[in-house]
């Protein structure tokens, strides 16, 4: 009896550990465009994201250099002059979906998302919402929020100030696959 109990507890503990959803090809984009000027926006298709469906904890990581701009020179300036991508190659997010309950998601459900976004080594608290929806076995997480270059000590010289928006829209869409 005790043996069975022990085995049972071990199994439960194991399954609790394994409830994670993951992707390496998450889509993150930002838009800092100002009307009447060249669009300042870029897409990243290699964001890694992990969601623990037991407690709603979420973490994501992306490489700054993996942001693709339509204009190559803009991408070069972004990395070299604004983001110091060699010194700070990664941006990370660590947060939690509040009152998360995996079972409560039937088709899709919106949760509050809180966490800390770290860019150029500078942390910034993010408070937004995220929508989770089921796609077969997979989970799709979508969200958006605004940040400002000054939150991360990103200096914008006077010459180009008019061409870069003061608030930057960040959109993300991650299709998470159950991690074995």
């Amino acid at each position: 009896m005790k043996n069975i109990l022990l085995l049972g507890i071990l199994l439960i503990a194991y399954t609790v550990k394994a409830q994670k959803y993951f992707t390496k090809t998450g889509f993150t984009e930002f838009k800092a465009s100002v009307e009447a000027f060249e669009p300042v926006e870029a897409k990243n298709n290699s964001t890694t994201v992990i969601l623990d469906t037991e407690n709603g904890e979420i973490a994501s990581l992306l490489f700054i250099k993996a942001f693709n701009f339509r204009v190559a020179l803009m991408q070069e300036h972004f990395n070299e002059n604004y983001m110091d991508s060699n010194e700070h190659p990664k941006a990370t997010f660590k947060g939690k979906l509040l009152d998360f309950n995996y079972k409560s998601i039937e088709n899709s459900k919106t949760f509050k998302l809180q966490g800390v976004l770290t860019i150029k080594g500078k942390p910034k608290t993010i408070d937004t919402t995220a929508t989770l929806s089921k796609n077969g076995e997979n989970l799709i997480l979508e969200s958006n929020f605004n940040v400002s270059p000054s939150d991360f000590d990103i200096e914008i010289p006077n010459v180009v100030r008019k061409k870069i928006a003061e608030t930057v829209d960040v959109n993300l869409s991650y299709e998470l696959v159950k991690k074995s």
Binding site: L6, I50, A59, L61, E76
Partner: peptide
């Protein structure tokens, strides 16, 4: 065993787990 499991679980930092997974051939700036 329980304690062992518990330690395993609390050590499980999600971001640290990502760090080990994330890989990227990074091209140097020009």
């Amino acid at each position: 065993t329980m304690v062992g499991n518990f330690i395993c679980f609390s050590q499980d930092d999600l971001l640290a787990e990502l760090e080990s997974e994330a890989e990227y051939t990074s091209y140097e700036l020009p």
